[in-house]
């Protein structure tokens, strides 16, 4: 097994009396690219900020690169990259000035790569940061976070303000970064199709906990929708394990399960004399079935 890059144990975080995270467990290993999904207000940003030591956990632990998140030293921070939802930029500095300013903090700054990204994303290098569009701000934030080629990259909704073409460009850069299998990426998003393209793994945050965190292929293979037509009326309640959705209308029923195996259709045929049609679900449908 490869090296653990990030580890969260029984993490709780409350703001006043409101508990946002209520016992999060999450482990990521080197080379993983994980898409973090969750509804608005599920606590995705809070979790990422706890991981980066920007928020203090109420209980439990968060660690990145083997070091407690609240006590990260300069050497760990040099190996981390972070793109927040709102990128901080000095309004009076030009894009180029902001790049130079950021580069000065890092010994391992890849200037040629940064120049290439600025060019590819058509960022106006002489424009002041204060007058950039939201999309340009986000692009610049990503460039700044990639400049030192971080081993662990954490992105909070990185593509939210990007147009489809910029989004594809960003995903391409992410794939290039992840290509050597040594980088680890955790990104939160609402756009499930991006996760399906670039992520090796997917994690779902729901009710303050990680509901599942596993490889995307396995998730698609075990989550299926079955359309049943039985010999007699189907029961209104299902006693099957792993049921996410169960809708019955007389002798027909729609069943969504999270533990599909090749033997299940045969079991259903034997149990209810049902004809079974199996449907594959994409990540968006899986996401909705789990929320």
């Amino acid at each position: 097994m490869s090296e653990v890059m990030l580890e969260v144990k029984s993490l709780r975080k409350s703001f006043g009396t409101a508990e946002v995270l209520s016992g999060v467990d999450l482990v990521m290993r080197r080379g993983e690219v994980t898409g973090l999904l969750g509804l608005n207000g599920a606590g995705k940003s809070t979790l990422l900020r706890c991981l980066l030591g920007l928020l203090r956990c109420t209980a439990g632990t968060a660690a990145v690169l083997g070091c407690d998140s609240w006590n990260l030293g300069a050497s760990e921070k040099a190996r981390l990259g972070y793109v927040p939802q709102d990128v901080f930029l000095f309004p009076t500095l030009s894009v180029k000035g902001m790049v130079d300013y950021t580069a000065a903090f890092y010994g391992n700054w890849n200037a040629s790569r940064v120049t290439e990204l600025l060019r590819r994303w058509e960022l106006p290098v002489n424009k002041a940061c204060g007058v950039l569009s939201p999309g340009e701000r986000q692009k610049l934030g990503i460039v700044l976070a990639l400049g030192h080629e971080p081993e662990l990259l954490i992105l909070d909704e990185p593509v939210a303000s990007l147009d489809p073409s910029a989004r594809r460009g960003f995903l391409e850069s992410l794939l290039e970064l992840a290509a050597d299998g040594n980088r680890t990426v955790l990104f939160s998003t609402h756009i499930t199709s991006d996760v399906e393209r670039v992520a090796s793994d997917v994690a779902l945050l729901r009710s303050g906990r990680i509901q599942f965190h596993e490889d995307l292929d396995g998730l698609k293979e075990r989550t299926k929708r079955l359309r049943l037509t039985a010999g007699a009326s189907l029961p209104l309640q299902s006693d099957l394990p792993g049921v996410l959705q169960w809708q019955v209308n007389g002798v027909t029923g729609v069943l969504t399960v999270n533990n599909f195996t090749a033997a299940l259709p045969d079991e259903l045929r034997a149990k209810w004399g049902a004809d079974v049609v199996i449907e594959d679900l994409n990540l968006e449908e899986i996401f909705l079935a789990n929320n």
């Binding site: 499930t192 199709s193 399906e196 995307l216 292929d217 698609k220 293979e221 594959d280 679900l281």
Partner: peptide, 10 residues
């Protein structure tokens, strides 16, 4: 088709 229900490798 990344957004198909069939895993990409498959």
């Amino acid at each position: 088709q990344p957004s198909s229900g069939v895993p990409l490798y498959r």
